[in-house]
Amino acid sequence: MIEGFAAALPANAWNWVAVWRRNYLAWKKVSLVTILGNLADPMIYLFGLGTGLGIMVGRVDGASYIAFLAAGMVAVSAMTASTMETLYAAFARMHSQRTWEAMLYTHVTLGDIVLGELAWAATKAFLAGTAITIVTATLGYAAWPSVLYALPIIALTGCVFASLAMVVTALSPSYDYFVFYQTLVLTPMMFLSGAVFPSDQLPGAFQQIARCMPLSHAIDLIRPVMLDRPIGGIALHVGVLGLYALLPFFLSMALLRRRLMR
């Protein structure tokens, strides 16, 4: 059993690149459409809520509401982009398109496939998050050049949510189950993690829950660098995000091995 799991691990440090490059090649053909699609949603939220609610809310934590919201939207867009890629696109490649099956005939192991898919989803998250970061910085809602520190955090956030979504992908019998994860996990997380309003406004119990959620750690890192403020507890935030990226990765691999290699 342990030997079998070892065979499903990534074969080496670079094999996953072939999987990543396959996805990149397929994406290149439709890149313009998907970039616009990925950008439109968070932009609409940012300007819709930011300007509309901003009038009523005024300033939050010493920043304009739209500048406060921008950091939340960057993190949320990274979360959404990598989740969607791993839930729908990777599930299609595993299930209906049988792309993974063909990969398993080769030198690529299941671990390489999972790693390649996660890296790809994180790449898309990075693109989506960076695009919004650039727009907000250009419009003067984010501080320059400290906003550049947000980029690696966006990539890490992408890894975290790709990894978590891979567990859902591994468990789902069909597409229909993804909506539960989105509405019961991701949407509440967005509201609890301080993306649209400060989480210290929440009742104590909810604040405790929020502290366990990866999105709040991502936002706690992204918001200060975008507003050029001192960050507290960097090691803790990065550590929590790292765990949220690594543990689901191994769990999803074990689950996928049971699903695909039984």
């Binding site: 094999n15 072939a18 999987v19 490059r21 396959r22 090649l25 063909a102 990969m103 080769t106 030198h107």
Partner: peptide, 8 residues
């Protein structure tokens, strides 16, 4: 091409 890459 892509399949060749899977074999390194």
């Amino acid at each position: 091409l892509v399949f060749g890459r899977y074999f390194g």
